[in-house]
């Protein structure tokens, strides 16, 4: 592989040995993660697993205490303008300035992004049924999410980052969000990173996933490979047993007597 400077890196996100401590709590432990360019990457984990903390590092909102973070080959803390101008971001709490009217918010945001596409923004506004004269504070939860999504999409970012985009939303708005993810990768070959605890959504749209738990990556792989390598087997033994032998790659087993269910992750290569 040839190196043609930072931007030629095949990975759009490269996190190495990242650790983060908040007062008495270790939020990220020696976490490494690579997100390749193109496609949809799903970051899955429960509340407090470290998803948002990791994302805040990618956006340069937190500085790595240990380890390194590179987005487009750049350090987001050292080069915030170069990184953030190419990212579209929707935060979990969808924080938007409440006092503004939507039309003012769009004008205001547009000024930050040279690549802002007014035609696309207007198309999204119509699709999302957003009234430009409405004040942000009087938007419903769903309309607020759509407004945030519009802002994240309208400059056609190379990397779209969505933190729990569907949480607390009705199915109609969730549909818009999934549709935007698919459109982003299908029409333009861009990269989407989204975190979620709604695993059926992740299963629908992600090419790759990482499972994050208590600040560590437990597993990261292509979705297809994860699906193909995990199996449930129901085994019948000749004799009744309380302690059937383990299988290689076994994650769990339950049962009694002669019938036991095994959950397996194939056979570990390491």
């Amino acid at each position: 592989m040839t190196e043609k400077g930072a931007n030629a890196s095949p990975a759009i996100i490269e996190v190495q040995h990242l650790s983060r401590r908040f007062d008495d709590r270790q939020a990220l432990h020696d976490l490494s993660l690579t997100v390749p360019r193109g496609g949809v990457f799903g970051l899955i984990g429960g509340n407090g697993a470290g998803k948002t903390t990791l994302i805040r590092h990618l956006l340069g909102m937190l500085k790595a205490q240990q380890g390194s973070v590179r987005v487009f080959g750049l350090d987001p803390v050292a080069a915030p303008a170069a990184v953030l101008g190419r990212i579209g971001y929707l935060s979990e709490d969808r924080d938007l300035p409440n006092w503004m009217r939507l039309q003012d918010l769009l004008r205001y945001t547009q000024a930050f992004y040279p690549a802002w596409d007014s035609v696309y923004a207007e198309e999204l506004r119509k699709n999302f049924d957003l009234n430009p004269a409405t004040r942000v504070k009087s938007l419903s939860r769903g309309q607020r999410a759509r407004a945030g999504l519009l802002i994240a999409l309208a400059h056609r970012p190379e990397l779209l980052v969505l933190d729990e985009p569907s949480s607390g939303l009705d199915p109609v708005v969730r549909r818009d969000i999934l549709g935007s993810i698919i459109r982003t990768v299908a029409d333009e070959g861009r990269t989407v990173l989204f975190s979620s605890h709604l695993l059926d959504e992740v299963e629908r749209v992600a090419d790759r996933v990482a499972i994050i738990h208590e600040g560590r990556i437990l597993l990261t792989s292509e979705m297809e490979q994860i699906r193909e390598s995990h199996r449930r087997l129901v085994l019948q033994f000749r004799k009744s047993t309380n302690d059937p032998p383990p299988l290689d790659g076994m994650l769990d087993r339950t049962g009694s007597g002669t019938e036991w269910t095994y959950w397996c992750a194939g056979i570990s290569n390491s």
Binding site: V234, L235, W263
Partner: peptide, 29 residues
């Protein structure tokens, strides 16, 4: 981190047979 290997289902089946067990059901998750 586990490295996942394709084609491991066959190996699982052989392993089950080696334990003198019969596979009644097998499914993805």
């Amino acid at each position: 981190m586990d490295l996942l290997v394709r084609g491991d289902l066959e190996q699982l089946k052989q392993a089950a047979e080696a334990m003198q067990a019969r596979i009644l059901e097998e499914s993805t998750l």
